[in-house]
Write a protein that binds this DNA or RNA. Structure first.
Length: 341
DNA sequence: GAGGGTCAAGTCCGT
DNA sequence: ACGGACTTGACCCTC
């Protein structure tokens, strides 16, 4: 079956060994280095420090890909940590990435990573953080945001996943940003991206600034990523149905590729003793004194049977990235719910 | 080795 | 006006 026809779900950025093995956890997860630290180091030591972190991060990525490759086909989806190449877009880091030893390590490792993803049919995504605001009216912010997205395009390019429309379903996903400039502001920023980046970026509804309805006008420009938890918060309780007309708009925005969607659940220690089968009732929770900020926070696990079944019906049309603090263990929860594994 | 201050960046909300 | 949330808390200096 072609990779993009299999309904799938996966985890984001970090792997928790089910047996709690601390050495495995270190080997399989990224680290980082701050700009402040790099700034304090001299030339050779600065490069050495970056190389240390890069070896760890790229090794962790390759290890994560091996784990996902060993999972069943419907679990072959991975979000790569956007901090993979620290300081890549910063003036401190830029020259370091031009050094031969750094380039060789990064290029060779990402080529291997791309080959693993390709051979195992692993769908790849990334998620730049909140500082990436394509709609910003501030020229410096926009310039940083463009750099950041081109960095993400470079990662996918070095993995062999750039050139053309979302190769193998690859994407990097951002939010609409500030409301001030609206979707026209987003379009202005978007137009300044390289062609490769324009073919890789997606936009996701958030809880405060750009809800699903606000993003629909962008469906002709960029694929829409539906986050069902954000939608629930933004609309104060709406569980969108797969046959909702807006879902068709989202689906069409992907131009034939299976869409990506996000799921998360309110924290299990917020909804203590809450019914695990009935979908949480936002108006009732609000009336009971729960604040939106309490309901927004992500759970450790996919602990809610009703939400898991809700994901199950939406898998008909979308692949899901599971946003839970305990990562792959939360995907295991979903797996048990949907497949009885 | 433990503890605590610090970390490149934007935007919104609550106070 | 300012701290916190957002998210993936981790790094790194000091003791």
């Amino acid at each position: 079956m072609p990779f993009d026809q299999i309904p799938r779900y996966g985890w984001c950025c970090q792997y928790l060994p089910p047996d709690g093995d601390a050495h495995a956890a270190h080997r399989l997860n990224p680290g980082t280095v701050t700009i402040a630290t790099l700034s304090k180091l001299s030339g050779a030591a600065r490069t050495a420090k970056l190389l240390d972190v890069l070896r760890r991060n790229l090794g962790a990525l390759l290890g994560q890909l091996d784990i996902v490759a060993a999972a069943p086909p419907w679990r072959r989806l991975l979000r790569i940590n956007s901090g993979l190449l620290p300081a890549y877009t910063h003036p401190i880091g830029q020259p370091l990435y031009g050094e031969p030893e750094v380039r060789a390590l990064v290029e060779a490792s990402l080529a291997r990573a791309g080959a693993k993803a390709e051979s195992a049919g692993i769908r790849i995504g990334l998620h730049p953080d909140q500082f990436c605001v394509l709609s910003s009216a501030n020229p410096a912010t926009l310039a940083n945001s463009l750099d950041e997205l081109e960095y993400h395009a470079d990662i996918l390019r070095m993995m062999g996943l750039a050139g053309g429309w979302h190769p193998h379903g690859a994407h990097f996903n951002i939010h609409g940003g500030g409301r001030a400039e609206g979707v026209d502001g987003f379009r202005r920023g978007f137009a300044r991206l390289s062609e490769d980046a324009r073919n890789l970026v997606t936009v996701e509804n958030d809880e405060v600034s750009y809800g699903l309805d606000d993003l629909l006008p962008l469906a002709d420009t960029v694929p829409l990523v539906l986050d069902v938890h954000h939608h629930w918060i933004k609309t104060q309780g709406q569980y969108i149905a797969p046959d909702d007309p807006r879902i068709a708009v989202v689906r069409d925005s992907w131009r034939g590729l299976r869409p990506i969607a996000h799921v998360s659940v309110s924290r299990e220690d917020v909804l203590v003793d809450h019914d695990r089968d009935a979908l949480p009732d936002f108006p009732a929770l609000a009336a009971a004194g729960f604040k939106p900020r309490d309901l927004r926070a992500h759970s450790d696990r996919m602990w809610h049977r009703g939400i898991n079944r809700f994901v199950g019906i939406h898998l008909e049309w979308a692949d899901f990235e599971v946003e839970a603090k305990h990562k792959n263990l939360a995907v295991d929860d979903l797996e048990r719910e949907l497949r009885g594994a």
